[in-house]
Design a protein around this nucleic acid. Structure first.
Lengths: 192, 192
DNA sequence: TGTTAAGTACACCGCCCTGTGTGCTTACCG
DNA sequence: CGGTAAGCACACAGGGCGGTGTACTTAACA
């Protein structure tokens, strides 16, 4: 057992524990939730010793916070930079997420942790505000009458779709997109 | 300690344990969440012995399910029966919930339990569908073009406001109500 | 070659959780 | 009065949890 598998760099498989831990977090926190995933199971899945995990993260709380920070869904990363779309299409593209995408871990973390002071809860707030701000920016480009308001409204639709999909186990994003279309057209029409 | 306080019926305070348990559930599950509320604490708060609790409910799971069944927010109970309002006002009244109201325990339970097969999760689904159906019914009375669609859309707005309020710790229901007004007017205008 | 950083293996601690077992007390009701 | 249903007090089992201590191994690097 001395000869372990080696990675592309020729280094021992053990190296890069932090990334494996975060990878296992993404998988297990999504599949089982945060509270129902123990550190033992998480470390086993990541093929990392528990000791190592607690040298990279001071505790589970910090790991959860970092897990949220790492998570960057398509909403924030690519959608708003697509110049091939009109501003209106860009706003609607935020609702066009593949069904396999894990459902809003920010809401999940805030509900599961149930502590507004928890670092992960604070980051969840920051993230939600950032999304609303981005939507407002795109709304401004699209020529909306009140971009801030429209951004907040669209953000609420995204959260509603996420929550409803989670509870009902049925994709609610098409419904949200339909509402978004009505809102956007209404807001743009108001300026014309 | 033999002379315990007596209730209005003259019966011993010990009687009616089930109601006290459910009352404590409503309080503690809301304040601390389900997973973070232990049966020990819950029984202490309800002034009920643990043994009694487990004679009324086979386990915490059943208690959680019953807690959800008991919870009947204003959305379902009174709003739709108010004949003093126009159908349109009735639809909007669903969004006019007092800020002190505990925030959608159904979403909370579904997220916290993280098990679609859990009795409470199943009831949460049923409840969400029932709300959408009621909204659709009111939408029909209001003369909406597609009542089912409008009902689903309004239900999504309610869930979005609940989720967003929980994460951001800021009342999102006014925003949802504003969107609802646009949707309703748009749906009614389509029929005229 | 020797040092050091990174990781491993594994036992272990204390805590809290759900759930039970046992024996006792009280109130109601025929 | 006596029986019975409801409840109480309390200890305890069994397990999972987050987190730590200790001693060892490996790979990179100077």
């Amino acid at each position: 057992m001395t000869e372990l598998e080696k990675g592309p760099t020729g280094r021992r498989r053990g190296r890069g524990a932090r990334e494996r831990i975060l990878g296992a977090s993404r998988q297990l926190f999504r599949e089982q939730g945060i509270n129902r995933t123990g550190m033992d199971q998480l470390c086993a899945e990541a093929q990392v010793s528990k000791r190592t995990a607690y040298q990279h993260f001071t505790g589970k709380d910090e790991l959860v916070a970092e897990y949220l920070r790492q998570f960057d869904p398509a909403v924030m990363s690519g959608v708003f930079d697509r110049t091939d779309l009109t501003p209106r299409e860009r706003l609607l593209a935020a609702f066009d997420i593949p069904p396999t995408t894990p459902l809003c871990p920010y809401i999940g973390a805030a509900v599961e942790l149930h502590d507004p002071e928890h670092p992960a809860s604070q980051y969840a707030r920051d993230y939600k505000k950032a999304v609303a701000a981005r939507l407002a920016g795109a709304a401004r480009e699209a020529g909306a009458a009140d971009p801030e308001q429209l951004g907040e409204q669209l953000a609420l639709l995204l959260d509603g779709a996420a929550a409803r999909t989670r509870v009902l186990d049925a994709d609610a994003f098409p419904t949200a997109a339909a509402v978004a279309a009505v809102l956007i057209d209404s807001a743009i029409r108001a300026t014309a």
